[in-house]
């Protein structure tokens, strides 16, 4: 027993080291989305490309889709944009854009210059829909199934690595299932 006691500090150290090692891999900024496995919130918002018209949640259903929150003021969105183009062109992924707290003219110019990977874009001028989505900034991307149930949320730019490792397996599953 006396001998064992000598090892108590070592055991405490090992325990703490274990916690800290685990802590290294945890990203404190990655918050679980409250929307996971819940339906996308209802919305009826202006259509960016067709002034005067609105788009509601009903229009987005039917196929598994990505919901991508973007803005022209967001540098990471510019980084991610070419990959979204790629996704649409080569993999045929349906992407629904939420133009978040942005200027319509700037947004339309952006789509004209960089290409338009979106099925359509809704305008969230004051960020109200963003709050319903529980976003903390742009870009954020949601994967939802054909019935509009959110499967997964990713914060930050989607690139090839993120797509292959997080979105694609779930997306293919949804495509096979639906």
């Amino acid at each position: 027993m006396g001998r064992l006691k000598l090892f108590i500090p070592l055991m405490v150290f090992a325990l703490l080291a274990g916690f800290f090692m685990k802590g290294l891999d945890i990203d404190p900024k990655a918050l679980p989305s409250m929307l996971a496995n819940k339906p996308l919130p209802e919305f009826t918002l202006p259509d960016l490309e067709n002034p005067g018209q609105t788009i509601s949640k009903h229009d987005t259903l039917g196929v598994p889709a990505l919901v991508n929150v973007w803005a022209t003021w967001c540098p990471s969105c510019a980084v991610e944009h070419s990959f979204l183009n790629f996704l649409k062109e080569t993999e045929g992924v349906a992407i629904i854009g939420v133009n978040y707290k942005d200027d319509d003219t700037k947004a339309l110019n952006w789509l004209f210059e960089k290409g338009n990977p979106y099925r359509f874009n809704v305008v969230d001028k004051d960020g109200r829909f963003g709050i319903d989505l529980g976003i903390t900034g742009a870009p954020e991307t949601y994967l939802m199934d054909a019935n509009g149930v959110v499967q997964f949320r990713y914060q930050g730019p989607v690139d090839r690595y993120v797509w292959e490792n997080t979105f694609k397996p779930r997306y293919l599953e949804l495509m096979a299932g639906g």
Binding site: K101, D126, G127, R128, G130, I131, I135, T136, G137
Partner: peptide, 11 residues
């Protein structure tokens, strides 16, 4: 000062 914080204050 984050944008989302301002939105949430308004909310």
């Amino acid at each position: 000062n984050a944008g989302v914080a301002a939105d949430l204050r308004r909310e």
